[in-house]
Design a protein around this nucleic acid. Sequence first.
DNA 1: GCATGATCATGC
DNA 2: GCATGATCATGC
Length: 447
Amino acid sequence: MTVAQALSKYKMYQGVIVEDSSNIGEKEYSGKGSFGQYLEEVFFGITNNSESKPDFIDAGLELKTAPLKELKNGELAVKERIVLGIINFDSIIEETFEKSHFLEKNLHILLVFYVYDKLAALENIQVNLVDIWNCVEQDETQIKKDWETIVGKIRRGKAHEISEGDTLYLGACTKGATRATSQVPQPFSDILAHRRAFSFKIQYVRYIYQSLMEKRQASVKRKKIADTIRITQNRTESIDQIIKEAFCRHKGKDAFTICKDLGLPYNPKAKHFYAQIVKRILGADANQRLYEFEAAGIQIKTVRIEVNGKNKESMSFKHMRYTEIVEQDWEDSDFYVDLTSKFLFIVFRRNPQNEGYFLDDVIFWNMPAEDLEEARKVWIDTQQKIQAGNYNSFVKIKDDRIVHVRPHARNAADKIITPQKTMELKRSFWLNRDYILNIVENKSYLT
DNA sequence: GCATGATCATGC
DNA sequence: GCATGATCATGC
């Protein structure tokens, strides 16, 4: 579907005049935001401006384009976060969420999801979905909480310690070409901080895309959408407090007993075993979905502690694609997205009396900014080695750098293509064993 | 058939 | 006992 077809089909842009595409070719659009600029100017007749007012003042709509990428199986998936506008450290400290510049600009967003293709001419770009998203109508509590978390750090003179992992839906992503040239002053500290912009985190954008697609399909097919429950509904506590309370009721029980008490089959090898337990403990049925987990992309990970007080295993993430990583920026990489998610660690401890493990702790965690910075360095090191065709000297666990690189394949024959057109064993980034133990032993949310 | 979370096996 | 390489189990 071309842009013109998509826009006229969805008719989601009341009050906005859509011109036809006859005035293409007058101007060159290039760079990252080129498709957005092209849409604004060619279709909506708005000249490109950096004025921070809504793009469609009459309609009260902000236009945002969001690239999709095609997966191997042909499905489309969200490619990156949606950036919502720069954070002014000096003026934001005077704002309240309700009267914030952020809300004024981003209350109603016209989203144009398109299929990313860096070689395609702009007028041939395929538009997949056009719809409006109102983040406050959908997620007021969490968006407000995220906004306040970010502003809170600025007010405490900690703007330099802001991390995307601090928040669930709304993130503060870095802005600027390089780290060195993007440092700006902050009001309550002499330390320079990276310039930042509000954004919808990629996990949240994935969720937005999924819900809008489901809404569209439901209206076509009248298919019933699976029941979704919000654990924060009618509650004032935060997500982690609610989780903690729910889990406290099962502390000390072994996994088998927990399953029995919850009416779940005991199948610890199943891929979603622990996710299922979490779901049930939080009061959802098997066919119900947990809104906050899906919208925030919370990663549920289990950690088993042995009798000697140590965990045996490091923690793997999805295997990297050598041809992708050499072209990516750190903040668009899969590993960055994983590490800036919230983690829910479920800690089981070996029972000295029998062979089993009992539930000891649940920990809601996100990686601190300084550790994320260390992970970035390892990622860069890995990227450079792949670029150089050096596949045998990646950072090892012994190097003690929080994360390391290790094989992650089905067997020795499970290889993928490299930028050098050779085949290499699949490898992943791993969180070091002792780093995980440290998280688990230093932060206890139960008891 | 492959991704993903999890775990095993071996040698130093 | 641990690092490292290797592989399993399951679901989609």
